[in-house]
């Protein structure tokens, strides 16, 4: 596994903390976010919601990915779905899962506020499969547990930013 820079690790640590806060407050997962370990890359079977965070010093993407059923469970938890609610359509799933990464972005901004001011959030995008870093980027994928759900947190950051 390629070692990541301390800068990339800082953002990952912040993202794990932000995810734990969001899991407890918005997803009704009292145990928050538990780190399982680092991954080389995501499985092609995963879907993820990604969000750009940009400032004069930082250009990066954060993401949260999971298997399709787990994406539905997480989006359903955020949307307070009840057992008799109809199954989420693809567009509502993308909207709901995108909202999770949007909230994560806001929470990460708060967590990192003392070190990084003036971060602007982009618009969430849902992508199926994995993303690949180019030579100017660092990618860190962290396997986490959100309650019983396996999920992956992604930080893709420009080395030169």
């Amino acid at each position: 596994m390629t070692a990541v820079s301390s800068r990339c690790q800082d953002w990952t640590d912040g993202l794990v903390q932000a995810t734990s806060d969001v899991a407890k407050q918005a997803l009704s997962i009292p145990t928050g976010c538990q780190t399982v370990g680092e991954c080389e890359k995501l499985s092609l079977q995963t879907s993820g919601a990604y969000l750009a965070l940009i400032s004069p010093e930082v250009q990066m993407q954060i993401g949260i990915a999971a298997g399709r059923q787990d994406c539905k469970r997480l989006a359903g938890a955020l949307m307070m779905m009840e057992p008799d609610d109809p199954e989420l359509t693809d567009s509502v799933l993308a909207d709901g899962f995108g909202e999770i990464v949007n909230i994560l972005g806001g929470a990460l901004k708060t967590v990192m506020d003392s070190k990084h001011r003036g971060l602007t959030l982009g618009l969430p995008t849902m992508i199926h499969g994995h993303i690949t870093a180019n030579e100017r980027q660092e990618l860190q994928v962290t396997h986490v547990k959100l309650g019983e759900i396996d999920a992956y947190l992604i930080v893709l950051i420009n080395k030169t930013s």
């Binding site: 989006a75 955020l78 949307m79 509502v92 909207d95 909202e99 949007n102």
Partner: peptide
């Protein structure tokens, strides 16, 4: 966001 409107209503 339709999802967020739903969350706010609930």
């Amino acid at each position: 966001s339709k999802a967020m409107r739903m969350i706010v209503k609930r």
